[in-house]
Simulated assay, not measured.
Amino acid sequence: MSQKAMELVCPAGTPAALRTAVDAGADTIYCGFRDQTNARNFPGLNFSRKEMQQGIEYAGKNGSKVLVAVNTFAQAGNMDLWYKAIDDVAASDAHAIILADIGLLDYAASKHPDLRVHLSVQAAAANADMINYYAREFGAKRVVLPRVLTVQEIAAINKEISCETEVFIFGGLCVMAEGRCSLSSYCTGKSPNINGVCSPPGSVKYEDHGTHLESTLEGITINQYPKGEAAAYPTLCKGRFESLGETGYVFEDPVSLNAAQILPQLQEAGVTALKIEGRQRGKAYMAQVVKSFRQAVDAVAAGRSIDLDALLAPMTEGQKSTKGSYQKTWR
């Protein structure tokens, strides 16, 4: 029996990526302004106000929606930058704004009560009480859930809340509760809540020692790879450590999230929207991943099955993937 398809939410770090995502079949695109209000404020990425409006118009003409992420935590003494970003989103034709900072949520609810608000994963709302609080006090219509919940936990939450849920299904895998991780801040001195990245490229270094390749983050060794082993991007929570005479990965292997095989279970759990990670990715990546998941989401809605592993394997880190906490058996 056919049922309503889950919403496919796709990233766009540039106007070209936005158009690619729309053309590939994205229902919704999320992106941000080219300033500190955006957790992916990297050189060469993001949108001017004019580009954002053009992107919103392009998406609208092709049946897609745009979400604007104002998802960093505001800096004391410099609130005007964040307030202006919220004002600009409210004045645009964007479908919704994505917020994490509780003060900014209050500002949006007070100044722009008609603005649709989605709660960012950076708010780390991982239980029904927290989610209902944001929905009740600030009118949040959707929450992006942290990547630390099982499918069963998501289903239980959906039975107790009054708003929609959105979950990550592909791309980088954060194994901590987003918004609460202090590991990278300790190592690099930069906060993911403000700078938007747990392993800044400027802190990453690879050194060839002949017998092995060593990856470091701000001078701290994260991993050592024997000759011939693929080297992953170094993040602290996915480092290889020695403990009690054994060497291995404590939390999760350094691979990408791929939940394509469990889309039916996520739909059964009451999930409204499926989110692809990767605003820093290029057009080729976007086209392949979005087209693949468009087929998969439509197939699930129609009660059909589809195998995406072969199509998506080249897009994953080290050509390996995991279902993460959705079906996690902890070591």
Rank of each mutant, 00 (worst) to 15 (best):
L244S: 14
E229H: 12
S256E: 01
H212V: 00
S182G: 05
G202K: 11
H212G: 00
Q224W: 04
S256P: 01
V271H: 09
P264S: 06
S243G: 07
Q261L: 11
T272Q: 09
L257Q: 07
P254R: 13
N223Q: 04
Y249R: 03
A259V: 08
C174M: 08
E218A: 15
C181S: 03
L244D: 14
Y249E: 01
N258G: 06
H209F: 06
A230S: 14
T221G: 09
T211Y: 05
C174K: 06
H209E: 06
I169W: 12
H212F: 01
G202S: 15
T216I: 02
L266K: 08
C237H: 05
E229N: 07
F251I: 13
Q265E: 15
L173M: 07
N223L: 01
F241K: 10
G245Y: 00
S185C: 11
G202R: 11
P192Y: 05
N195I: 03
P234E: 12
I222R: 11
S243N: 09
P226Y: 05
S191F: 00
F241D: 02
Y186E: 03
R240T: 05
I194Y: 03
E214C: 09
S256L: 04
N223C: 10
S199T: 08
H212T: 00
A260I: 09
P254M: 08
C237W: 00
E178T: 01
G196S: 03
N193E: 00
K205L: 13
A260K: 10
Y206N: 02
Y225K: 00
C187I: 15
E218C: 11
S256Q: 03
G202H: 08
G210L: 02
G228D: 14
Q267R: 15
L244P: 04
E246F: 13
N193R: 05
M176H: 11
E207C: 00
S199K: 03
G196I: 05
Q224H: 12
G202C: 12
S182V: 13
D253M: 07
Q261I: 07
G189Y: 08
A260H: 15
P200D: 10
C181I: 03
V204E: 08
F170M: 15
D208Y: 00
S203R: 09
H209C: 04
C187P: 02
H209N: 04
Q261P: 07
A259N: 06
S185H: 13
L173C: 05
